[in-house]
Design a protein around this nucleic acid. Structure first.
Lengths: 344, 344
DNA sequence: TTGAAAGCGCTAACAC
DNA sequence: GTGTTAGCGCTTTCAA
């Protein structure tokens, strides 16, 4: 009762279903009068074509799967918003699957859902354990693009790598270190984020180390002790004991926790301790002091990955893209306090 | 070639499609041997049943539509996350449609999409112009629940109102006003948010006025001048001229813009100007000073609306629910500066 | 316990 | 221009 079908429309318009179908798809020749009559009936009956039945013929569903770790993270929310909007402009529906990380079983369930819908392609933020998930998709020759992080240990069909759009941490990190150096900091450190989780954090750490090694007189006394885990508030005391005056965060979550801790211990950011973090979230601009960030060009990321997916679906060859990161100085980076900043 | 079909499975297992179907659905009796063989083939072929074809028979698609204004707003992101997670636990897929507000044409397109998928129900954050959209859904007798705001001027089937779960601003506002009063504030005002947009903001304003009228010696000199629009930075000067020492924000977006403005004008929140805002976003806790909020119990909101939808789909009668708001005092509310706070 | 056949709503040849 | 027919991948009678 709820839904009118194409047959109802045909009957009421006094034509056959194929004529209605033609009217629906602007295919074949139809007399203006018939078309007019059909449109009227469609309107009267509030008829909406069943896209499931429709897509069963056309070999494509005009549906794209989007797998992101956690929509509550505003970084991914932005990405999802951009991607869904842009795909919609191209006539594709986006199936957003969030909370794919963590539970590997849930991960599988989500992918089965997507496969069951016969999606035309997928955009994925791969996690540390998603290689199996990715295979499940590439096995079917499904056009696939990774965003934000490259897929580890998974190749696309024909053994070709899955195209990816992510950010090169080098430029942003370089500028950040230069700023710290210019302000007079000599002993600094990096909290990379959950190292075990992702190659992203690993890469940030590696690049950081290389850059630091090239800077005369600047040093990370904790470089060899980096623990693959998240930020621990007690680290703040450790930094103080080591005479560290500047900290970089590879994960914005850690940065926010550090800010809270600093506040509760009356440590003044920008004076007692300078800090910089990855991810240019709006929060960081309204904090006092505003936090210096290394920005990822998230808008471009969203745009490019959609472009790449569309190209892939069109059969064009697609190459991975690395976007530049850039540094934005804010008041969270100041001069080091008098008693630190130089070798003891 | 990408997808194996039920026929492929049947062929390879040496049985008929109906037998495979039965194995898939645990319906009918099947010999253990046959089932075993079928499962093996399913595994080998990486067979995933086509849920589109499947749902065309079963009269339900196990898919729920979720329409929210903007996923980038962390309030709605939280809501979406909660809802999708909970629906998944009940075996439903969630189609998240974001950015439905604003463009009414896009709104319609989204709904047609959902209708085309033959969703089993929908959860909606209705906007000011969504009554037409809602009708499109209710007309088909689709189970519907509104969240966060009540639907204006739209009734469900049988003319019954669409069940809704939202928050009663009264308790939170009352506590907020009491706090301001206790701190010594006597002249305050409310920036309700985009009044034209939603009855939510209208209600907050009305309740505020009523409460204020009942408080001895506290006054809003601007009560009659409230403009239906968003926050204008120049209002800060106006407040100063009027001797206003405390401000409430009906919209967290306005609050954030006000904080930025205050910072740029060296106005100290909590000293020169006390402020309180609706929506208990994480941001407000890490700002300095932390911002006093009126919280909406968003978790409960997400849980309840899913429960309500499931009940509706099961045919049970469902009543709208109003959750309580509550006030959380933070340092953004302090004593008024000496030269304000009392009648001149 | 299993298979054959009809049909879900739609599209796409192929006739007329 | 329009109707007829045969499927798409699946479930579901009804027989066997």
């Amino acid at each position: 009762m709820a839904y009118a079908t194409i047959r109802d429309v045909a009957q009421r318009a006094g034509v056959s279903v194929s004529t209605v179908s033609r009217a629906l798809n602007d295919s074949g020749r139809i007399s203006p009068a018939t078309r007019q009559r059909i449109n009227q009936v469609i309107h009267d009956l509030h008829y909406v074509p069943d896209s499931r039945a429709r897509s069963m013929h056309s070999a494509h569903s005009r549906t794209i799967g989007l797998l992101i770790p956690d929509i509550r993270n505003s970084y991914f929310a932005d990405l999802a918003y951009l991607i869904q909007g842009q795909l919609l402009n191209h006539g594709f529906q986006t199936l957003i699957c969030t909370s794919t990380q963590g539970d590997p079983g849930e991960d599988r369930a989500q992918v089965r859902n997507l496969l069951g819908q016969h999606i035309d392609g997928a955009i994925i933020v791969p996690g540390p354990r998603s290689s199996h998930t990715l295979e499940e998709l590439t096995r079917r020759g499904l056009p696939l693009v990774c965003v934000d992080r490259a897929a580890e240990g998974a190749a696309g069909r024909d053994g070709r790598a899955i195209p990816c759009v992510d950010a090169d941490p080098e430029p942003g990190l370089r500028q950040a270190l230069e700023d710290l150096h210019a302000q007079g900091h000599r002993r600094i450190t990096l909290v990379p984020g959950p190292l075990k989780e992702s190659a992203t954090f690993r890469e940030r750490l590696d690049v950081y180390r290389n850059l630091l090694a090239g800077i005369e007189g600047m040093d990370d006394p904790l470089a060899d002790q980096v623990e693959p885990g998240t930020f621990d508030p007690d680290m703040i005391d450790l930094w103080a004991r080591q005479g560290i005056s500047g900290v970089l965060f590879g994960s914005s979550l850690d940065a926010i926790r550090a800010i809270k801790t600093a506040q509760s211990r009356a440590i003044s950011i920008g004076e007692d301790l300078s800090m910089i973090t990855f991810d240019d979230l709006p929060v960081f601009r309204i904090l006092t002091p505003a936090v210096s960030t290394i920005s990822q060009q998230i808008d471009t990321m969203g745009t490019r990955c959609v472009d790449m997916l569309l190209a892939l679906m069109a059969g064009s060859p697609v190459r991975s893209v690395r976007l530049q990161t850039s540094y934005r100085h804010c008041a969270s980076v100041g001069r080091p306090p008098a008693h630190t900043g130089q070798d003891p």
